[in-house]
């Protein structure tokens, strides 16, 4: 594993995970191979392979219905795959339910964030995982930890004691991402984190994604937005009609190439011209892409 130049490794949330035998003391490496999922007559995913290393941002792109959400839900434990294998740090695992995913160190921030508007930031961060002292909520310790998490993300939240309703879209996304870090995960999945955000807020969230990478986490970024993807991702996995369509290093690819891979236009063009198809398995394995050039 080629670790990127981590300036903040010591602040890594997973530093206490050294016992798992991870020499870098950072995030987890996730790998999927041959994963398939079928809903009735629809083969939603077939033979999907994908790898995420610690300290790497892998973008998952594809048109509507390409299988992005299904794949994310499989990794998050919401769906069980019908075929294939999921490995964490090389060990095969089965992800039994969302709780199981969390226990394995996989945190997911879904698109609708799932925050309680009427509760303040601290309450939302620790919802379902409240710290207690003699049976009473330990607000002081939770507030301290909330500030520590938000600082680590260099997040701009003016106060952790204001209700979520008072925050902007970008700040809510920040809180949702910070909440995913409460359990010290190794892999964070972000589902469309920049959808419905303004320009400045999008930049804020992208900076946040880079910071997750700097702290050594593996990040899976699901997005429709090509410029966002190119701005933060190390590698880009393209899904089309439930299959791996192509895999690129973000540094080597243009928006046009990505769009072509997503729509399948390039393959049709090449086939028409009698050339070998790009994408698919030929060009994929670029797992150890050096991270950091986009940060």
């Amino acid at each position: 594993m080629t670790s990127p130049d981590l300036t903040k490794t010591q602040a890594s949330p997973a530093s206490d995970r050294a016992g798992r035998g991870d020499p870098a003391g950072s995030g987890l490496a996730l790998s999927l191979s041959g994963v398939g999922k079928r809903f009735g007559a629809v083969q939603a995913l077939s033979d999907i392979s994908m790898e995420v290393a610690a300290g790497e941002v892998v973008a998952l792109v594809g048109d509507n219905g390409a299988g992005k959400s299904t794949l994310v839900k499989i990794i998050a434990g919401v769906y069980q795959p019908d075929a294939g294998e999921i490995r964490l740090d090389g060990k095969p695992v089965s992800i039994a339910g969302p709780r199981g995913a969390q226990n394995l160190g996989i945190a997911t921030v879904f698109q609708d964030l799932a925050l309680c508007d009427n509760l303040d930031v601290v309450a939302n961060l620790f919802l379902g995982r409240e710290r207690r002292q003699l049976g009473v909520l330990d607000e002081v310790s939770m507030e301290q930890e909330a500030w520590r998490l938000l600082r680590r993300l260099s997040a701009k939240i003016p106060s952790v004691r204001i209700p979520i309703a008072a925050l902007s879209g970008g700040q809510r996304q920040t809180v949702a991402i910070a909440r995913s870090l409460v359990g010290d995960p190794g892999i964070v999945i972000l589902d469309e984190p920049t959808a419905a955000l303004g320009v400045a807020q999008t930049a804020e969230v992208l900076a946040l994604v880079r910071r997750l990478r700097e702290t050594g986490l593996g990040v899976i970024l699901v997005s429709h937005n090509m410029s966002d993807v190119l701005a933060v991702a190390d590698r880009i996995e393209v899904l089309r009609l439930g299959r791996n369509a192509a895999s690129f290093r973000a540094a080597d690819v243009s928006v046009e190439q990505l769009v072509a891979a997503i729509t399948g236009a390039s393959e049709r063009d090449r086939a028409e011209r009698g050339e070998a198809p790009i994408g698919g398995t030929q060009q994929t394995k670029t797992v150890d892409a050096p991270a950091g050039e986009t940060s």
Binding site: A114, N118, L119, A123, L127, R129
Partner: peptide, 19 residues
Amino acid sequence: GRHVFAVGGNEEAARRSGV
């Protein structure tokens, strides 16, 4: 009590948070 407020505010969010 925290969970009562959470369920009243956003039941789905509370459920997903493990409440």
